[in-house]
């Protein structure tokens, strides 16, 4: 039984401003929010007493901030950020003092993820590498290659998404053409790879331009499934006019458990999260017919595309702007979203 009713969800707090946010992380206990934006800054908000203005702005990056994570290290809490400026920066989470700056990738840093124990940071970038870092020292532990540098049509590719399993053992990464790779974090061994071609559009006759890719990627709480999200086949690449599309895979086999859209809604799922304790998969995105949060109910757990379709029954919440990133508050009681010129807090229960 779930206590969440997507039909009744409304934002509890919205911060609208000129910045478009691409990344955020939240301290569930204090409700403090760190959001990275297109102004190259990390804006810090006190979510417990939401102000109109951020309580601090950390400006060291020289381009869009695309990833932020909160690491609770022995020396104290640290924010680690990644940017299109190719850098990773470690910040004192309280003061904003820069602890270290590390060259991250030879290309835009697209996303970051942190192991639950805070020991390892994983980054992905447009050099198509997955990099594992010692979160404490900033030392590069290993660099994992395998995603193709180019699309099958000879264009530059991108490595959009990364996820870590709840036990910190597995890394998943997803690229522009729909290739998913799963690696064992400890050894760096490739454990699995599979393709999700629905999420990549390239029409060699009508629409000769790539669009889509794996944009949302997350492990289920039990670590047995991987959810991937993006946009289905796009009939006109001038816009994100394809259907919202998610798939859930048994990544070990690998085999698709189910796929679903959002009742004909169009758009791109840019981030995906499983609820930490309730049976919901939630996506955030935009394009098509507007910004959205989409809720797929996993009780009973779908085991086919038909059941996946039933998992979405009108559970789409409109957001006035593209949603780029999602994060959980304490125990999944609140969902935080960041996107086009806005931050929102969504009380779920």
């Amino acid at each position: 039984m779930t206590s969440i009713d997507p039909g009744k969800i409304k934002p509890g707090w919205t911060r609208s401003q000129g910045t478009t946010f691409f990344a955020l992380c939240v301290d569930g206990a204090s409700r403090k929010i760190w959001a990275g934006g297109d102004d190259g800054a990390i804006a810090v908000f006190d979510g417990a007493n939401p102000p109109k203005e951020p309580i601090a702005r950390w400006t060291r990056h020289e381009n869009y901030v695309s990833g932020v994570v909160l690491a609770r290290l022995a020396a104290g809490p640290v924010i680690i950020s990644g940017s299109y400026d190719r850098q990773l920066i470690w910040w004192n989470a309280e003061s904003g003092e820069v602890i270290r700056t590390v060259p991250g990738h030879d290309g835009w840093v697209r996303r970051l993820a942190l192991t639950p124990d805070g020991a390892h940071l994983v980054s992905v970038g447009d050099d198509m590498l997955v990099k594992v870092w010692d979160a404490e020292t900033g030392r590069l532990v290993r660099s994992l290659s395998g995603h193709a540098l180019q699309t099958p049509q000879g264009h530059v590719s991108a490595l959009y998404a990364v996820a870590l399993s709840g036990d910190g053992q597995w890394i998943a990464s997803g690229d522009r053409v729909g290739n998913v790779r799963v690696w064992e974090l400890g050894s760096g061994q490739l454990a699995q790879t599979f393709e999700v071609p629905t999420l990549y559009t390239y029409d060699p006759r009508q629409r000769k331009r790539s669009i889509g890719g794996i944009r949302g990627l997350t492990f289920s709480p039990d670590g047995n499934s991987l959810a991937v999200g993006g946009i289905g086949q796009v009939p006109n690449v001038d816009g994100l006019t394809g259907p919202v599309h998610v798939e859930v895979w048994d990544w070990r086999k690998p085999a698709r458990r189910w796929a679903a859209g959002a009742e004909g809604h169009k758009g791109l799922v840019n981030d995906l999260v499983f609820h930490p304790c309730e049976p919901w998969l939630i996506g955030g995105g935009g394009g098509g017919d507007g910004g959205f949060l989409a809720f797929w109910k996993l009780d009973p757990a779908p085991t086919s595309d038909a059941q996946g379709k039933d998992a979405f029954t009108g559970r789409r919440v409109k957001v006035d702007g593209f949603v780029h990133a999602l994060a959980w508050g304490a125990a999944g009681s609140e969902l935080f979203s960041a996107g086009y010129r806005r931050l929102d807090i969504w009380p779920l229960t």
Binding site: A158, R209, S210, I211, D238, L240, L268, G287
Partner: peptide, 14 residues
């Protein structure tokens, strides 16, 4: 296919 009303930076990167 330069008409990038959406995702302009990804399309122009390509």
């Amino acid at each position: 296919w330069w008409d990038s009303h959406h995702d302009n930076f990804e399309s122009h990167r390509e």
